[in-house]
């Protein structure tokens, strides 16, 4: 029973990270119908910025803030410079472009910060069963996710962003600046993704450190139906706990395999996600 409890707690904090990175994918997917494969690279660059700022100033929180700011700016830049020019190209083009950017940014990170791992600190003490750092991860993600959901549901900006995502043409006819909404969406998503990166990276940062987390985050997003923010958060937490059971009871080497098995099963059985509505969306 204690084992079970411990595994659940351990799963909760990693699940929170999957949820946050998954959420950043979903915000973009529902706005632009693009799975942003560059998301882990954006989070990686901002985490490296945090590493450098923290190293230079000695303050973890200055690094943290710098990472969120840089992440947001990167997200906006990717939308403006890479995705928007491809808006009339075939659907797959922007997705391939973000994949290309992932490889480029990982290489650039290696060139600037080297491919050797550097020590990357936790926000708080990380020792113990459910440490302060774990608690911070869970709280930070829950607060952020709640903020994003409230923004979408209850603010006029959120309403405009949803309208621009659901039906850009009608949104324009109602005076919504759809381009601005897309840019804001990418900025917001990249900020959330950067938070996920900061939580997922420790104890060591290297250019490929987020690859595995990204697979889990993508699984969480698919579990949630890819355009359902709440579903993705629930999916991320459930996946974290589930994988923690797999690691604890069957062996940690089976974790990536289990995640992929879940991904494939969901896509095969419920392609709209566990929480996706059955209604087919016109794209």
């Amino acid at each position: 029973m204690t084992t079970f409890f411990n595994l659940t707690l351990a799963g909760l904090s990693s699940g929170a990270v999957f949820a946050a990175l998954g959420l950043s994918l979903v915000i973009i997917y529902r706005a632009t119908r693009v799975v942003n494969f560059a998301q882990p690279a954006l989070a990686l660059i901002s985490s490296y910025v945090a590493y450098s700022v923290t190293k230079g100033t000695g303050s973890y929180w200055l690094g943290f803030a710098a990472a969120i700011v840089v992440g947001t700016v990167l997200g906006i830049a990717v939308e403006r410079l890479l995705v928007r020019p491809l808006r009339n190209a075939p659907e797959l083009s922007p997705i391939i472009a973000t994949m290309g950017l992932l490889l480029v940014l990982q290489a650039v990170a290696g060139m600037i910060w080297s491919n050797e791992p550097h020590a990357f600190s936790y926000a708080f003490d990380f020792r113990g069963r459910f440490s302060a750092a774990d608690l911070f991860a869970v709280l930070a993600v829950l607060v952020t996710a709640t903020g994003v959901l409230l923004l979408f549901k209850f603010t006029s900006l959120g309403l405009r962003m949803r309208a621009a995502a659901f039906n850009p043409e009608v949104a324009r006819l109602l005076g919504v600046r759809v381009g601005v909404m897309l840019t804001l969406g990418w900025g917001l998503a990249a900020a959330v993704g950067s938070l996920a990166g900061l939580l997922a990276v420790p104890p060591f940062i290297s250019p490929t450190v987020l690859d595995e987390v990204f697979v889990f985050a993508l699984t969480a997003a698919v579990l949630g139906g890819l355009d359902n923010p709440l579903g993705t958060i629930v999916g991320g937490l459930a996946l974290g706990i589930g994988l923690s059971y797999v690691a604890g009871l069957l062996g940690p080497e089976l974790v990536p395999l289990a995640a992929l098995a879940i991904l494939v099963s969901v896509l095969a059985v419920r392609p709209a996600g566990l929480f996706g509505r059955a209604t087919a969306r016109r794209v």
Partner: peptide, 30 residues
């Protein structure tokens, strides 16, 4: 649209995922 021309497209262009009130509010947000 913001200069005062409201275009109701063929079929209405109602956004089915939003509530009735959200659809309405959307028309005045600018």
């Amino acid at each position: 649209a913001r200069s005062g021309v409201a275009h109701v497209p063929e079929g209405g262009g109602v956004i089915p995922e939003l509530t009735v009130e959200e659809n309405l509010r959307l028309g005045a947000l600018w």
